[in-house]
C-alpha cells in the first residue's frame, strides 16, 4: 500500500508551496525584530544559506520594498546597504572586486555594523586632525 492512500488531515493553515520559503524567512525577520526590541541584540540572516529560487528572491525584494536610506561602500570591491520599507531591516550585499556577490545578508539592526565608525578609528581621526592643524600652524599652507 502506498502512503498516499492514507488520508492526511492538515491541522495547520499553510501557505502555497512556492511561498513557504518566503513565509519562513519573514517569520525569522519578525522574530529578530522582536529580539532587537527586547534586548538591543542585532540579528543577521544569511540569504545565501536560504535556498531561494531567483523568482523567490525577487518576490522577497518586492515584499520588503525600498526604504529611505541607501549607501554604497568601496571597500575590497563594492558593497551596497539598502534600507527596506521596514525600518530596522537592511539588505546588505557584498561584492568582490570583480563584481561577484560574496555575501548577501539581511541585517536587523538600528544601523548595519559595516556602516558604524568604531572607537579606534575616532582616535586615529583625532590624531590626523591634530597633524593637519600643526601642519597649518607651522607651514602656513593648506594642502
Amino acid at each position: 500500500m502506498g502512503l498516499d492512500t492514507i488520508p492526511i488531515r492538515s491541522e495547520v493553515m499553510s501557505p502555497p508551496f512556492e511561498q513557504q520559503g518566503i513565509v519562513a524567512l519573514l517569520q525569522e525577520i519578525s522574530q529578530l525584530l522582536r529580539q532587537l526590541a527586547l534586548s538591543d541584540e542585532n540579528g543577521v540572516i544569511d540569504l545565501r544559506r536560504s535556498p531561494l529560487s531567483p523568482a523567490q528572491r525577487e518576490a522577497l525584494l518586492t515584499l520588503l520594498g525600498q526604504g529611505e536610506v541607501s549607501a554604497e561602500l568601496t571597500v575590497m570591491g563594492r558593497s551596497r546597504v539598502e534600507e527596506t520599507a521596514l525600518a530596522g531591516v537592511w539588505w546588505v550585499t557584498h561584492y568582490n572586486e570583480e563584481g561577484v556577490v560574496v555575501a548577501e545578508l539581511l541585517e536587523i539592526a538600528p544601523i548595519p555594523q559595516i556602516l558604524l565608525s568604531v572607537e579606534d578609528e575616532l582616535g586615529e581621526s583625532q590624531d590626523r586632525l591634530q597633524q593637519m592643524i600643526d601642519g597649518i600652524i607651522n607651514g602656513g599652507s593648506v594642502k
Binding site: 544559506r49 571597500v75 560574496v102 545578508l105
Partner: peptide
Amino acid sequence: RGFLKFCTATASMMALPP
C-alpha cells in the same frame, strides 16, 4: 571595514551563523 567584510563572507562560506 574590509576585514569585517572578509570575515562576513568567510562566515557565509563556512555555513557559520553570520
